[in-house]
């Protein structure tokens, strides 16, 4: 049940890491379209650049070349402030290794993006509401009874669910999930998948999920594969000058 208008588009993304004499061309002109409300899974070999692509899409990093559009607006070359705001409100990140802040309890971790959004003032004014919202979020992911626990007191699955709740607290438009089930056992993995699918179906959340697990791919709307720094089946995009010469 996804629409046809592309929400997030990336064209000709290039990213090269240079370390000393080594050039690692990770992305070589990758194109990707994500439609509104789509649940897209991205697969590819280890080291093929899935995480790198996700970071680029989520403005955590900037591409060497190419551009990224969100609803037609170019976002990869925005000033740092605007990209910070995008990360805070438009994108939700779920990492493979949960990445919860150890100084905060579960509820505070979930509230972290909201805390970043709000100044001290508006935080105090909206505190009750936000806390309620976070508690609901945690309830939804099945952690309603562990609000005051520290991250280290949770299991891997529970931490990942807390991380999902955190990614959703600011009601993002796109959820970028980097192997959300990679570190979990089968049961936990299925639980998380169900959660994501429900979110996609009932809240019309656009999800881009990187995974290794081909079993999970069947539960998503569409699957793309990264090979050689490009999308599988993508036309070999050439630099414009070269194309003109041919």
């Amino acid at each position: 049940m996804h629409g046809t208008t592309p929400l997030l588009t990336a064209i000709n993304l290039r990213k090269t890491y240079v370390k000393y004499a080594n050039r690692i061309e990770v992305l070589r002109g990758l194109d990707i379209d994500v439609a509104e409300g789509e649940f897209l899974s991205v697969i590819g070999n280890s080291g093929s650049g899935k995480s790198t692509m996700l970071h680029l899409l989520g403005t955590l990093d900037t591409p060497d070349d190419g551009c990224i559009h969100l609803e037609g607006r170019r976002i990869d070359n925005l000033p740092a402030r605007d990209r910070d705001a995008l990360r805070n409100r438009t994108f939700g990140f779920i990492f493979q290794f949960y990445h919860l802040l150890p100084e905060m309890n579960v509820l505070e971790n979930v509230l972290a993006p909201a805390m970043i959004t709000h100044s001290v003032w508006s935080w105090w004014r909206n505190k009750k509401e936000l806390r309620k919202h976070a508690a609901e979020m945690l309830d939804k992911v099945g952690l309603g009874h562990r609000l005051t626990h520290q991250p280290r007191e949770l299991s891997g699955g529970e931490m990942q669910r807390a991380a999902i709740a955190r990614a959703l607290i600011n009601r993002p438009r796109v959820l970028l999930a980097d192997e959300p089930t990679g570190n979990l056992d089968l049961a936990n993995g299925h639980h998380i998948m169900k959660l994501l699918r429900d979110l996609n179906q009932f809240e019309n959340l656009t999800i881009v999920m990187v995974t290794h697990n081909l079993d999970l791919v069947h539960e998503t709307d569409r699957m793309v594969r990264i090979i050689d720094g490009r999308m599988d089946g993508q036309e070999l995009s050439q630099p414009p000058a070269l194309a003109a010469a041919v």
Binding site: D84, N88, A112, I116
Partner: peptide, 16 residues
């Protein structure tokens, strides 16, 4: 360092 990365990923600014 990792926590700082997380904060930035969640939208915290450098100034923040």
């Amino acid at each position: 360092t990792r926590d700082i990365g997380i904060l930035k990923a969640l939208g915290a600014s450098s100034a923040g």
